Simulated scan of single mutants.
Amino acid sequence: MKLKLGFSPCPNDTFIFDALVNKKIDTGDLEFEAVLEDVETLNRWALEGRLDVTKLSFPAYFKTADRYALLDSGSALGKGVGPLLISKGKQTFSETEVNAAKVLLPGVNTTAHLLFSFAFPDAHNKVFGVFHGIEEAVVEEDAALGVIIHENRFTYQDKGLIKVKDLGEYWEEKMNVPIPLGGIVIRKSLGTDRFNQVNDLIRASLQYSFDRYPEVSAYVKEHAQAMQEEVMRKHIDLYVNNYSLDLGTEGKKAVDTLSGIYNRIHAGA
Rank of each mutant, 00 (worst) to 15 (best):
L114S: 03
I186R: 00
M232L: 15
A60Y: 04
L115E: 01
H223V: 08
A143M: 08
Y170A: 12
I25Q: 03
A218V: 10
A144Q: 14
V81A: 02
I184T: 06
S259C: 11
Y219T: 06
R44C: 04
S73F: 10
V255F: 05
S75W: 04
Q228V: 09
E95F: 06
D193R: 14
I86Q: 02
N241W: 09
H124I: 06
T41I: 13
V39M: 14
S205R: 03
E222R: 13
S189N: 14
I148Q: 01
D29S: 15
I179T: 09
I16T: 10
Q207H: 10
K4F: 08
V103F: 01
E173D: 14
E97F: 08
S57Y: 05
T110K: 00
N152C: 08
Q225I: 05
P214I: 15
R44Y: 10
K79E: 13
V39D: 03
L105N: 02
A254S: 11
T155R: 12
K63M: 15
L201D: 02
Q91A: 12
G133S: 13
N99E: 15
A226N: 15
E40Q: 15
T14P: 11
H235W: 04
L167P: 06
L47E: 12
Q157F: 08
V177N: 05
P178W: 00
A224Y: 01
R194C: 09
G80T: 12
P214E: 15
L20H: 05
D166H: 06
G129M: 12
S87T: 09
I162V: 15
K174L: 14
V164K: 01
K126M: 11
D237I: 05
G146P: 15
K234S: 07
K165I: 07
E173V: 09
L47Q: 10
S117A: 15
I148E: 03
E33L: 12
A143R: 02
E230R: 07
K102L: 03
